[in-house]
Structures are given as C-alpha cells and as structure tokens.
Design a protein around this nucleic acid. Sequence first.
DNA 1: TCTGGGGTCCTAGGACCC
DNA 2: TCTGGGGTCCTAGGACCC
Length: 391
Amino acid sequence: VDLDAFYASVEQADRPELHGKAVIVGALPGHRGVVSACSYEARAYGVRSAMPISHAYRLCPSGVYLPVRMHRYIEVSGTVMDILRDLAPVFRQISVDEAALDLTGTERLLGDPVELAASAKKKVREATGLTISVGIGPNRYLAKLTSERCKPDGLLRVREADAAAFVAGLPLDRLWGVGEKTVTRLHEVGISSVRDIVAMPEARLFSLMGKGCGSFLAHAARGQDPGIHGVASPAEPSSHSISGESTFERDTADAEVIRLLVLELAQELAGRLIRERVTSGTVSLKLRLDDFTTYTARRSLGRAVTSGGEIAEVAMQLLKRRWDGRTPVRLVGVGLADVTPADAWVQGELLEDSRTKSRKVEEAVARLRQRHEDLPITRASLLRDPRRRRV
DNA sequence: TCTGGGGTCCTAGGACCC
DNA sequence: TCTGGGGTCCTAGGACCC
C-alpha cells in the first residue's frame, strides 16, 4: 500500500485551494536542496522527486513551493497506518507512506483481497482525503511492483501464474532495488531487459554481477521475492543507526562554524537517545567538500556514549583526520551506529561514573523539553554565534 | 545546473586470535 | 624463501530507497 505523492497530497488536503495546482514540497527556490515530493500536476512539467530545486523551478516557475512539514506528514501517516493495521493480522509499516499487509490464507476470514483493498482505499479517503495505490501479488516484492505500476489511486492484482509475464514487461529500472548504477552495469554486459536476465544462465549472471546482486536479479526478474529486508523474518532488527546532517547555505572553511554545527548535531542525537530510550557505542562523521567528494569516518568506543558533548568530541576527532582546515566544506553530518535499547549498556554506564554527570544534565534538559515543548534551551555556545547560518 | 536528509544492506580489506 | 584456514570485529565506501 502506497500513499500517492504523499507530502504534496497532504498539503493539498490541508489547503483545498491547492487542489489542481503544481505543488512542490522540499527546499524553497533560491536555496540549496531538492524536491521531496510533488503533485501530479507538477509532474506534468517534468518535475520529479530528488531533483534539485533550482532545476524544478526552471521547469515550473508557476508552481507552489512549500517547505517540508514532517510533523504533519507523520501525523497523517499515523491515521492511515491505524486504518491499515486493522485490516489484516500481519501488518508492516515500511516507511512514512508505505505499508505491507500479508493476506496469505485470509480469504475465508477477510474475503477477497481486491474487495479488501477497495475498502481500504475508501476508508483512507474518507478519513484523510488522500488516495492510496494498492498492489496485490503472490509475494511482497511483486505487490510492491504492482502498486508502483497502478499509481496514482490504483488497485491492481497480479496472480502467481501471471507474475513472470508481468515482470518481464517492465523496464529494467522499474525493478525495485535496481538503480542507475546497476542498469549501467547490466548494459555493459549486454543485458537491456528483464527477459535478458531470465535468459542468462545463473552462473554467468553471478560471475558478471557478483553473487549478491546476481541472485537478487535472478529472483526479481522471475517475479520471485528476492528476499530484501528480511521479508520472512518478523523479528525487528536489534540494532540500527540514527544520524543528522546539514548542508551549509554557502560552503565554508570556517572551523568555528563547522565545530558549532557538529556540536548542534551531536546535541540533537543525544536528545534522541534519551527520548527513544536507546544508546550507542559508535560515533560517525560525514564530511562533504565543495567538489562533492564525501568522506565518512566512524569510531567504536567499546562502551555507550554518555552525552552530546562526548558525541561531539569524538566527531571532532574524526573530522580532524579528514579535513585539512582549508578546503571549503559543503555538508557536515554526525551519526550513531549500533543503536540498541538503553538497558543493554547499563553495565558500562555503572563503570563510567565520571561521564554520568553531563549525561544527567542532558537528561534533565530533555525532561524539561518534554514538559515545555517550545522551551528554547540549548548550549550557550550554540546561542551566540551569528555565523551559524545554514539551511 | 547542481546535486537534501534519513535510513538499510552489502562488500571488501585489515587487524587480530586460535 | 615462503609464509594455512577459519573466525570475529572494525572501518570505509557503495548502491539503493523513501
């Protein structure tokens, strides 16, 4: 189940005067950034997601350009997901605008999947004014391709017997998981269609594309589930990562501006750790220079990070290894990997008494913020520097 | 003409251990 | 002069998706 042109559709639902207009949600013209989502009216001008906003503006200067209101989209998404969750015993939210329902063996209980999908579309429209596209297939991968094929406001079922033929009719780049690089590589080895993949002996495909990629392609091209994202495993991942990054409005080589951004990003991550009751022992830094070359560096601490100050300190050490102090910097990011539930690290914390003080301060700040949402409380160093202007 | 931000998964090489 | 095999952990980068 896919929400159509999600962010743009939410804006249109919230402001009826935008219906029928080219709505482009993302960066605002004149600033650095890309299109996050756009209405179908905007697509008629050639505007697409992920396109630089300057390019979109040239194609469609008459469009309505709106900033991303993520909180609102999450709120609407929650309403939709609650509706979908009630429809089937096995529900999985994939992203803010996407979910999968497993209807295997439910026909006797829930009725025909197509009717169920139609009723889902009706319920979502009545509750939110939004349209969804529903693809039904013999596995999740095919259902995904099907929903892509029928959007917007679509409903399409492809049965097992028709799966291979359906996939064979798609251009290579419409296979989920096959992007620009893979298409280029496939062309290099003489493959220009899904049928070419099916026709190639698997051993040859594996040797040309590598085992992982080759196996993925062999399954996908036949309409079989290639097994991405652990389709069969209901268990939630025990570890993941969180990060924050920001592009400067203008590239900068000012070390103090960069340091303050690192500190701010680290502070935001520390706040998330506390709010989400998780922790991490691995800090990462991302650096993008003016020519777009991008470095990442990370360090495992062997224990849990204890404060935003500490995250920033490690990130700065990583930065110093990567930046010569002169080259203009475009983007800085700070991240945490191996994020796990907070109780997993309690042992380590007990041994790190000297670090718990700053952690306690940050936890107190987080509690204050929870009670008083708009409380402008932050580190003094993040308050006073007027150079800290960024996107 | 420029190219966001937040993620996931995979690969490959080096260090280190038995 | 020639230096195995298997395993784990860590790091960096790449591809892809929403």
